[in-house]
Computed example of a mutant assay.
Amino acid sequence: MLFTRDTEVALAAAAALVNTDDPDGEKLPDVAALDDFVKTWGWTGERARNQAELKAVRALRPRLREIWHSDEERVVDIVNELLRESNALPQLVKHDLWDYHLHATPSNAPLAARMAVEAAMAMVDMVRAKELSRLRSCDYPTCGNVVVDLSKNRSRRFCDDGCGNRASVAAYRARKAATK
């Protein structure tokens, strides 16, 4: 493990959120899809479960995506903006199956604010560890997803949407075609 568990989960959740903004089709089309996303990633706290909340979460995605495509100075600017806008006040908390970890917003803060701050706090660890190179885009040519490479040898190239399999199949077919 490179980072604490909560940091790694927050990084993965931020990437997953960014990747819901898909040019081939919205992956958060409605409140029910947001409910599923929240459940999948274990978000706790109060929820409005309405269109305004969905709109606020969707609006967060481009700001987070920018982190994957920025230099360290811009990442720091984005992180500080997100923390400042959400009035982040880090505190140690313990709940559910989690041991002590940081929350920087109260559980009744808007979902989008909690998501923004969780992502920002995880990025703080990335910046401090000089590990921003672990934030990259999927190597599959037609994929626009972002990837967090938490492997020891920094070898992760593809997102979780099957791009690695598609790349392997394409390479296999190319090798087969070359031998004919």
Rank of each mutant, 00 (worst) to 15 (best):
D35T: 11
N87Q: 13
F3T: 00
A52C: 02
E81Y: 12
T105S: 05
H95Q: 12
L150E: 11
K39Y: 11
R173A: 11
D30H: 09
D30F: 05
W68L: 07
V18R: 00
T105H: 02
M123N: 06
R136W: 08
G25V: 05
H69G: 10
T7E: 04
V169E: 05
G25A: 07
E73T: 15
D36Y: 07
W98Q: 09
E118K: 10
R84H: 10
V57F: 00
L97Q: 15
D160L: 14
E72D: 08
L82C: 03
S168L: 12
N145S: 14
V148Y: 00
K180N: 14
D161G: 13
A52G: 04
E72K: 13
E118D: 15
L2K: 09
R154Q: 13
D71H: 11
V31F: 00
A174D: 10
A12I: 05
V148L: 00
N108E: 14
R154S: 13
E81F: 11
A174K: 02
N153R: 14
M1C: 11
S70C: 05
R58A: 01
L60R: 07
M121T: 09
A129K: 05
N50T: 02
A104K: 01
A32N: 13
M1I: 07
E73N: 13
V38G: 01
M115V: 06
T4S: 15
D125S: 13
P110A: 15
E131I: 04
N80A: 05
G162T: 03
W41V: 01
A15P: 04
H101E: 12
N50M: 01
E66H: 10
E46V: 09
F37R: 03
S107A: 15
W98M: 07
P110Y: 08
L97G: 15
K152S: 14
P23Y: 00
Y172A: 11
V127K: 04
A178N: 10
N80M: 04
G25S: 08
E53T: 01
C163D: 02
G162D: 02
E118F: 13
W68N: 05
E26Q: 15
D139C: 12
E53Q: 00
Y100L: 13
P110Q: 11
A12Y: 02
A167E: 10
N145V: 07
E131W: 10
S155H: 12
L2N: 10
C138F: 07
D71I: 08
D149A: 04
N19L: 02
T44A: 12
S155C: 09
M1E: 15
V127I: 14
R61E: 12
W41S: 03
L34C: 03
M121H: 10
A109I: 08
K55L: 06
L97T: 15
S155A: 15
A174T: 11
L28W: 05
M115I: 07
G144L: 06
L82Q: 02
A178W: 03
N153P: 08
T105E: 09
M1Y: 13
Y100R: 14
A109V: 07
A14M: 11
T20E: 14
T142P: 03
